[in-house]
Nucleic acid binder design. Structure first.
Lengths: 240, 240
DNA sequence: ACCTGAACACCGTTCAAGT
DNA sequence: ACCTGAACACCGTTCAAGT
C-alpha cells in the first residue's frame, strides 16, 4: 500500500476538495502530487481571484484557500501582501504588447494606447493597485522605455518625449480610472433616484439634457476620441 | 458649585484632553460645553485627518478619538464609513470654484482644469476615494453640469460637449492619479537601487537618458502642457 | 525547507445597556 | 436622543512548533 508522504495529512483534512481539485494523479493513479507553491503560482491565483471577485475581496486567507494552503504558507514565497500586489501589477504590464519601433509613430502610439486600455479593461483592479503601489516594476519600466523610444525616434526632444509619454499615460489612466470607478453605468444619472430626478432638471440642466444621450458608457470609444486629439496635438508640436 | 451635567463623565475620563482641547468654556468660565456631534463635524475631522495622515490611516476608532468620542457614537450621525467617504468627496468638489459662464470658454476651461488639479493636489486622497465610491455627489454633479454648460455655450454639440468633459476629467484624474501614486519622486529612477542602475542603462536606455532631466515631478507644469494641447484640439473640432 | 495553529494588534459594524 | 462597552467576524503578520 502506497504511503502518501508529507501530503497525507492534507488528504485527511480536506478529503473531498483534495480529491476533486487540488491533487493531480500520476498516470498510474497511485501518487497524488500537489504542485509546489511558488511566487508565480501565488500571483496567478491572485490575478484570477481579483478578476472574478475584485481586489478588495482578496485576502491572504482566501488566497491561501484558493491554493489549498493556509494563509501563513504564502509568506514562505512572498514578502507580504504588497509583494503580491506588485506581482499582479507586473503581470498586467507584461501582458501588454510592446510597440513596434519601426511602425509609423502615430499608428504605434494609437495601437499602444488601445492595448493599454484593453489591459486595464480586462483587469480593472490594476488601477487601484497602481494607486497603492506605484508603477515601477520591471514590466512597467520596459513598457515606458519602449513608448518613449517611439516618441524619440519620431523626432521629439527628450523633454517633449517625456511630456508625450506622461500625457498618454494620464489619458489612459484617467479613462481606466473612470471605467473602474463607474463600470457600465450612465455617467450622469447613476445613483439618482426618481424623486431626485425632477429637481435635477433645474439644478443640473446640462447633465439632465445629456443623460438620455448616453445609454451606457462607451469608454473605449470615448478614449479613442481623446487619443486622436492628443496624437494630433503632439504631432503639431513636432519640429520639422 | 456648578454641576457639569451629562458631560461630567467625559471630564472624569480624559481630564487632560478635555481641558486643553475638546471643551470650550463660556465667557464666565463656569460651564464647559462640548460641540455636539454632527455629520459635518465628522466629515471635517475626517478631511483634516486624511490631509495629515492619509486616508488609509483613517479608521472609525481613530476618527472618534479625534472628536473625543467612541467610534460607535459616529454611527448616530453617519450611516457607515462609506457615508463619511462620500462626505469627504463632496467636501473637495464643493471647494472647487465653478466656472464663470461668461468668460471665454478656452480661458474658463483652462482655469477650471487648474482649479481641479489644485484641489486634487491639496487633498490627494480624494483620487483614492473616487476609485472606491464614484463621483456622483451633489457638488461633483454641479461641477460637471457647469463645465458642460461652458462647452455647450461655446458651440459644441451635446455629444462633443460630453466628449470634451470626459477628456478634461480624465486628463485631470490621470495626472492627479499619478501625482497621488508617486508624490514628489522622479518617475523613472524611483525604487531603483544603485546596483540595478548599471543594468538599467542597457535594458531601459530611454528611461535612463531621461532620468537626469527630471529632478522632481512638476505635475502641475506637465498637466498644463497637456491641458493646452487638449483645449487646442477641442477648439479645432468646434463647428464654425 | 516548507507548512501549520495559535496569537497579536488591528479593522467595520451590531446591539443591548446605560444616561 | 445620544453615547457606550462588549462582542462578532473579519483583517495582515509573527513566531514557535511541527514534519
Amino acid at each position: 500500500m502506497y504511503v502518501y508522504g508529507v501530503n497525507v495529512y492534507v488528504r485527511c483534512k480536506h478529503v473531498k476538495v483534495d480529491l476533486e481539485n487540488s491533487l493531480s494523479y500520476d498516470a498510474d493513479m497511485t501518487a497524488p502530487t500537489r504542485e509546489t507553491l511558488t511566487r508565480d503560482r501565488i500571483v496567478d491565483a491572485a490575478v484570477a481571484f481579483a478578476d472574478e471577485h475584485g481586489v478588495e475581496a482578496l485576502s491572504m486567507r482566501k488566497l491561501g484557500a484558493e491554493l489549498d494552503v493556509e494563509a501563513m504558507s504564502l509568506y514562505n514565497h512572498v514578502a507580504n501582501k504588497d509583494d503580491i500586489y506588485d506581482g499582479m501589477i507586473d503581470y498586467v504590464f507584461a501582458s501588454i504588447p510592446l510597440p513596434d519601433p519601426d511602425e509609423d509613430w502615430k499608428l504605434a502610439i494609437r495601437r499602444i494606447g488601445m492595448a493599454g486600455m484593453d489591459a486595464f479593461t480586462l483587469h480593472p483592479w490594476v488601477v487601484k493597485l497602481l494607486m497603492v503601489r506605484g508603477n515601477f516594476g520591471p514590466s512597467a519600466m520596459r513598457f515606458t522605455d519602449r513608448v518613449i523610444g517611439v516618441f524619440t525616434k519620431a523626432g521629439f526632444s527628450d523633454e517633449d518625449a517625456h511630456h508625450a509619454w506622461q500625457m498618454l499615460a494620464s489619458h489612459t489612466m484617467g479613462y481606466a480610472f473612470q471605467q473602474a470607478a463607474n463600470p457600465d453605468t450612465n455617467h450622469y444619472t447613476v445613483g439618482m433616484g426618481t424623486e431626485q430626478f425632477a429637481r435635477m432638471a433645474e439644478e443640473f440642466p446640462n447633465v439632465t439634457r445629456l443623460g438620455p444621450l448616453l445609454e451606457c458608457c462607451e469608454y473605449m470609444t470615448e478614449f479613442a476620441f481623446g487619443l486622436d486629439i492628443i496624437i494630433d496635438g503632439l504631432a503639431a508640436r513636432l519640429p520639422r
